[in-house]
């Protein structure tokens, strides 16, 4: 089973990387970009019987830092 874990900074947490990307986009002449937030996509290939609880546990224990990040689990059709 393919699983995508999307990790993003919590709202309100300053994102220096997103700000730098925003600045670079503006430097390239793109207008109308209101905000940029950079996150991380982690692709997992796990046993088909992996439970939702186990996936959740992986996110909380390692893949995301719950102090500053949120995560979203997406099961991807093979």
């Amino acid at each position: 089973m393919k699983v995508h874990v999307h990790v993003s900074l919590k709202p309100g947490v300053l994102d220096p990387q997103g700000r730098a990307i925003h600045h670079a986009l503006e430097g390239l002449g793109f207008i109308g970009v209101n905000d940029v937030r950079a996150g991380r996509l982690i692709e997992l290939d796990v046993a088909d019987d992996t439970s939702d609880a186990a996936l959740d546990d992986m996110c909380r224990k390692l893949l995301a830092n719950m102090v500053i990040e949120n995560y979203r689990i997406e099961k991807v059709a093979a």
Binding site: V13, L14, P16, Q17, R19, A20, N65, V67, I68
Partner: peptide, 17 residues
């Protein structure tokens, strides 16, 4: 130490990158 939970909070990329 923050990642292990022994200390609270987190250390992020420097504000000026």
């Amino acid at each position: 130490l923050t990642e292990s939970g022994l200390l609270p909070g987190a250390l992020m990329r420097n504000a000026a990158q």
